[in-house]
């Protein structure tokens, strides 16, 4: 059963069309790699899935619920079930790491202070971020900020996680850590979409891929299927040849 299903999705910015007729689906526990050249609208598509961008047509269903046309208040309910890992972490710079992680728990759960503290300590431990809870985002490295952002997106244990270039700009050590985290979540049955240019990470964690070009998805399938694609640019992209 498809957890996320996008059909004939359209998105414009003013007179500029970003997407027309984009369709794909992701089944429960699957990780879809959304790939394509820079400026093809991968992040816009990802943002549209949680209503950070408004759709200009088509259909988006999450757990069989149509979400296009939702009001901001209706979106709030959907966003509790969908984690979003921002490219730069998007941490609240006036809050410490602890406060950043406590934010979703304080907003959406009835946990007491001790339970919140225990949960955050565990989460920081899982993400290799021990001893950072009293630090502010400005005191963390880029890799640590991304991991805190990821940890925050997962505090409510969402059914779906959307990753926006989680490994961009990271060293191989931190990239591997993020890959392991994504795989660990996948093993727990979390459905996810990964937007990335980092093909080794995409190959390591994704079950299937959708290739965005010219405002639509021109090819989708498993890595083997993409490699067999008649479109040479897809093979070139996969193999790291500039297109």
């Amino acid at each position: 059963m498809a957890v996320i299903e996008v059909r004939n999705f359209k998105k414009n910015f003013g007179t500029k069309t970003i997407h027309e007729d984009v369709s794909f689906y992701v089944r429960k526990g699957e990780c879809l790699g959304l790939v394509g050249g820079s400026g093809t609208g991968k992040s816009v598509l990802l943002r549209s899935l949680i209503g950070l961008e408004k759709s200009d047509g088509g259909s988006i269903q999450i757990n069989d619920q149509e979400i296009v046309g939702f009001s901001e208040i209706q979106w709030l309910q959907i966003r509790k079930k969908v984690g979003y890992a921002f490219q730069g972490g998007a941490l609240f710079d006036s809050m410490t790491v602890f406060e950043n992680l406590a934010y979703p728990l304080l907003e959406h759960t009835e946990l007491n202070k001790q339970q919140i503290k225990d949960k955050i300590t565990q989460q920081l431990n899982d993400f290799g971020l021990n001893d950072t809870e009293s630090l502010f985002p400005g005191e963390l490295s880029g890799g640590m900020q991304k991991r805190v952002g990821l940890a925050r997106a997962m505090m409510l244990e969402p059914e779906i996680i959307l990753y926006d270039e989680p490994t961009a700009g990271l060293d191989p050590y931190n990239t591997k850590k993020i890959q392991d985290l994504i795989l660990r979540l996948k093993a727990k049955g979390v459905t996810s979409i990964l937007v990335t240019h980092d093909m080794p990470t995409a190959f390591a964690v994704c079950d299937k891929f959708a290739f965005l070009k010219d405002k639509r998805i021109i090819e989708q399938g498993t890595l083997a299927q993409l490699k067999d694609s008649p479109q040479s640019m897809i093979n070139q992209f996969i193999e790291g040849i500039i297109i």
Binding site: R47, I50, G51, L52, E72, I73, W75, L76, Q77, R79, K80, Y84, F86, G88, A90, L91, F92, D93, Y103, P104, E107, H108, R152, A153, L156
Partner: peptide, 16 residues
């Protein structure tokens, strides 16, 4: 600019 408003929305809360 730093996407903190987006993060408030993405975490199921309202920037308003």
């Amino acid at each position: 600019v730093t996407q903190q408003i987006d993060a408030i929305r993405a975490l199921g809360t309202s920037p308003i």
